[in-house]
């Protein structure tokens, strides 16, 4: 393994994030505060408890997941798309790095950033509501798994995209709608049929509920199903990346 090479990419990416550290941190803090002002103060007071959980606390895992998805995809896709765009990818391709090492470098850095943002949201949320985390270690592991998965997914998007507008399409048109419809801010138990059943086809439901389980010990779907769904997505992304590097798709002519 070329650990130095991986570390070089990781450091480079983290340095890129540090250049925009303050905006990078201000965005999640402000967004979270806005959500709490709107959902917490304005709407939350009219909402009853969900599964015995105060509404303000209930939306925290959903908020974290929403940011985790978008941050992961954005950072990872931008990280690999930028060198393709500027042409500096020549250096990565000509370096003694295997595909997996390149991916670890980029995805590792993007996942670190995405997880940091999610944790900043958790801290900010604590200023508004009292959030208890029943399984903190599992919560962190789950956060890591989802961040890694969506960063892999973002890496694929970054290689697939032909321009910067295409980088935005997947997060805006697919991931954000699926997240809003996937029970980020409500329990799917609250939905009438047939919407409840239809919602079960939304993969994001399993991701959010798995994460929510680590907070409250209860969720809309069994935690094992959530884990299985998350792993399935993770492996699909891994397979796609393996194929990309094997064929050189949009990387090598």
């Amino acid at each position: 393994m070329n650990w130095r090479g991986i570390w070089a990419i990781y450091k480079f990416e983290m340095h890129r994030f540090r250049r925009t550290l303050w905006t990078g941190l201000a965005v999640p803090v402000i967004t979270t505060s806005l959500y709490f002002i709107v959902f917490g103060a304005a709407i939350g007071s009219r909402m009853s408890e969900i599964n015995g959980i105060d509404y303000g606390s209930f939306i925290v895992p959903g908020l974290m997941m929403l940011s985790l998805f978008t941050e992961s995809i954005f950072n990872a896709s931008f990280g690999i798309h930028m060198p393709r765009f500027t042409g500096t990818i020549y250096e990565i391709l000509s370096a003694p790095l295997s595909a997996i090492e390149t991916v670890i470098g980029y995805v590792g850095a993007a996942a670190t950033k995405a997880m940091s943002v999610a944790l900043v949201i958790l801290i900010t949320a604590n200023l508004f509501v009292d959030v208890r985390v029943e399984h903190p270690v599992l919560m962190l592991l789950y956060l890591l798994l989802v961040a890694a998965t969506f960063c892999l997914f973002g890496f694929i998007v970054g290689i697939w995209a032909k321009g910067f507008e295409q980088l935005q399409i997947i997060p805006l048109l697919i991931v954000t709608p699926l997240t809003f419809l996937g029970g980020a801010f409500y329990s799917i138990e609250m939905l009438p049929e047939p919407w409840r059943t239809i919602t079960l086809f939304n993969p994001v439901v399993y991701l959010i509920n798995g994460f929510r389980w680590t907070f409250f010990g209860t969720a809309d779907v069994p935690v094992a199903t959530s884990l299985a769904a998350t792993f399935a997505f993770f492996l699909t992304c891994l397979g796609a990346i393996w194929w990309i590097f094997r064929t050189g798709y949009r990387l090598k002519q």
């Binding site: 130095r4 090479g5 990419i9 250096e91 990565i92 003694p96 790095l97």
Partner: peptide
């Protein structure tokens, strides 16, 4: 300086 050091480490050198 960063970019040149990056190149060295990318190629696995100390």
């Amino acid at each position: 300086l960063n970019t040149v050091s990056f190149s060295r480490e990318l190629f696995g050198r100390r």
